[in-house]
Simulated scan of single mutants.
Amino acid sequence: MAELLVVEDDGEIAAELVQALTGHGYSVRHASTAEDAMCQAVARPADLILLDLGLPDADGVTVCRQLRARLPVETVIVVLTARTQEFEVIVALDAGADDYLTKPFRLTELLARLRAHLRRRAVVAGPAVMQFGALRIDTHARRAYVGQGEVHLRPKEFDLLAVLAASAGTAVRRERLMAEVWDDNWYGSTKTLDVHISALRRTLTDAGEDPGRITTLRGTGYRFETEARPANSSP
């Protein structure tokens, strides 16, 4: 049974979420403040955290960043927000969130997102181990290495890397990446894909991988190069 932590200060919304998610077979805990959320999350990590950005005692983006820094890399964070400005959502994604939902949202949409995220914690389909120069990707262990050093990737970053590497040398369309790494019924902007690709590039480059490993194909998608090329400045 997957364990969820709902971080929501509105008591009525929280009660509805806890009841609905429990009714669909999840083990659900609730925190109403950032402080309580951090204590619970660290003491007993959940599989997935639903994090409201409008908390009374701290900025939700800051809380997201702190949770990401302290929790296991496989923990999924989905932010809930009443904010409609795209840049605010992008900031949350860049702070470590894997996904977001804008209030008000439908329960069916939330449940679909949760199923997709929890499903993708499993092994990404493809070869167990892929090697490209110094870069090694182990999809069964969900680990990536550059040389002897492990590259610490967030769940969505690893999934993107695995899907792209499994089709190395060929173009992978944006629609396919969204369907395989997020969900076939994705409702939000595909800007989240660009944010995660940029983060993946930065992480690989910081670990010593050649910066041109992932090429942007404007209007199409991305290509994982079997041999790295000069850095691509596009997201």
Rank of each mutant, 00 (worst) to 15 (best):
E86M: 14
C39A: 15
A116H: 04
R44L: 13
P127G: 06
V91R: 11
V63E: 06
L110T: 02
A97M: 08
E86L: 12
D138S: 10
L110A: 00
L51S: 00
D138N: 15
V28Q: 02
A128N: 13
R44T: 14
L53D: 07
L48V: 04
A125T: 14
R44E: 15
R68V: 06
E86A: 11
L80S: 01
I49Y: 08
E109C: 03
P45K: 05
S27M: 15
L50G: 08
E74L: 12
A46S: 11
V63P: 07
A112P: 06
G23Q: 13
D47C: 03
L71F: 05
D59P: 00
I90F: 10
L48R: 02
L48M: 02
G133D: 14
R120K: 13
L93H: 03
Q131M: 11
L67C: 08
Q19A: 13
L80P: 01
R29T: 03
L135V: 07
E16Q: 12
T102E: 11
T102Y: 04
G96S: 06
T139A: 06
V79S: 05
R136M: 13
E88K: 03
A82T: 09
R120S: 10
L93Y: 01
G96P: 00
A41T: 06
R70V: 09
R120F: 12
A46E: 05
P104G: 13
E86G: 03
M38I: 14
A95I: 02
V91W: 02
K103R: 14
E16H: 12
F87M: 10
A43D: 11
R136W: 04
E86S: 12
L48I: 00
L71H: 03
F132D: 02
A14K: 05
G133F: 00
T102I: 03
R121A: 06
Q85C: 09
V63I: 10
L80K: 01
L111T: 04
S27N: 15
L107F: 14
M130R: 00
A82E: 15
T102L: 08
G126R: 00
T81N: 00
M130Y: 06
A134K: 05
D59W: 08
V61I: 11
A69P: 05
I137F: 01
C39R: 13
A112Q: 09
D36C: 08
L93F: 02
A125W: 09
Q66W: 05
L55R: 02
E74M: 12
Y100S: 03
